[in-house]
Amino acid sequence: MSDIKFSPIENKIKQLGPSDRARRIFHGRGGLYEGLEHICIDQFKNDILVTLFKEEESIDDLMELVSKSFCQENIFLQKRYAKEGVQPWRMRNELSHVAHWEDIQFELDFKENQNIGYFLDIENGRQYLKKNSSGKKILNLFSYTCALSVIALKNGAHEVVNVDMSKGALSKGKRNHVINDIDLTKVRFLGHDVLKSFGKLTKLGPFDGVIIDPPSNQGKSFYLEKDYPKILKRVEAMCAPGAWLMICANSPFLSTEDVKKMVQEHATGLVFVEVFHSGADFEEREKDQGLKGLIYLRA
């Protein structure tokens, strides 16, 4: 019975074939595979990550399928429903844990963390930065491990200012710049609370590009629906005329139209250009329930 249950996963693995690029192999959360909505599988070259969002009664059968499909790779399991960190299921090699994007690499951390250091879903945002970073001074809010900063600088950005409350994440972000041979005089790492740093950030501007990619809910420190308007009210003052803004939200409870209304109410000088959603690896019944990245220009 379990063979039939997991056949969509087996078929997807066979369909995709081998690859070195970081990718989502199976996106059950997209709602297209009945009974498998709680399963996601990612590949980072030598590492496979299986993430469960609720308990799976046939977990051994699922992991056996993954193990047989990826004979040489390390396999990790994360039970997000139990708020457990990433755990090794089977180790095959001691190679470094990295995500590859074109000729850039990012270090990953599979030790107990809920997030391993690289988000696959914002691929279209990475492509936007590849085309729109050259010569720009960019502010990267909620920068986490600074992957978007690395991409911007590798594609000609003049300077990037990264801001995140987690100094540990920023430390990993700095390491990502180092391993990609980026001139550190072009980048800053500020361990600040964005909501308490508007004055400082305005003084560091004006910026030609601003990335806002906050967590949906970070306990008491950030709540998307309540705190996003606070940022939008202040961000225009940080921007040079004609600057672009990448305004991201990843919540099924906040639609593209909701974000547009929020911007229209709190940042009247911004002009909507386009919206992107999760990358092609993320098959979704309702794209708007996943990542939304709205591009605006400051008038």
Rank of each mutant, 00 (worst) to 15 (best):
H38K: 11
F53G: 05
K54Q: 15
E286N: 15
A249N: 12
L139A: 06
K230N: 09
E265H: 13
Y296F: 14
N93G: 07
D109K: 06
I122F: 12
A267D: 02
G168D: 11
I25G: 00
R285G: 13
F272Q: 08
V178F: 09
D208C: 05
G219Q: 05
N132M: 03
F106Y: 12
T202A: 15
L270Y: 06
I295S: 01
N74F: 06
G242L: 07
N115W: 07
L148N: 02
R126K: 14
A237M: 11
L139Q: 01
L232H: 00
G269H: 08
C71A: 15
V271Y: 11
V161S: 04
V160S: 04
Q15F: 11
N115S: 12
E284P: 04
K79H: 15
K154C: 11
A299W: 09
D60W: 03
T256N: 08
L153P: 05
A237V: 05
D181M: 10
G35R: 12
R23N: 07
L184S: 03
D213R: 01
F272H: 10
I39S: 01
E55V: 11
F207T: 00
N124D: 09
F253H: 15
R24Y: 01
F282E: 05
G135V: 13
V150K: 06
I4H: 08
L232V: 06
L232Q: 01
K233D: 03
N132T: 06
D208N: 14
M262K: 06
L95S: 14
E73Y: 04
Q87S: 12
N124G: 04
V271A: 09
V271I: 14
E274C: 12
E34G: 09
E107I: 11
I41G: 03
S69R: 07
Q43E: 13
E123M: 13
E55T: 11
F189T: 05
L232C: 08
P214G: 05
G293M: 15
L77E: 00
H97E: 12
F6M: 04
A237G: 12
K154W: 09
E34K: 15
G173N: 03
L201Y: 07
E225T: 10
M262L: 14
L108D: 02
H97L: 10
I4P: 04
F207M: 02
L77C: 08
G242M: 10
C146P: 07
L270G: 00
F53Q: 06
K196W: 02
R23P: 02
N176H: 04
D193C: 10
F276S: 13
L270E: 00
L224R: 03
E274W: 10
L224D: 03
I75T: 03
P252F: 09
K226T: 09
I59A: 09
D3P: 11
I179H: 00
V163D: 03
F253L: 12
A99W: 00
I13D: 06
K260Y: 07
Q127C: 10
E102Y: 12
E73N: 14
A240S: 15
G28M: 06
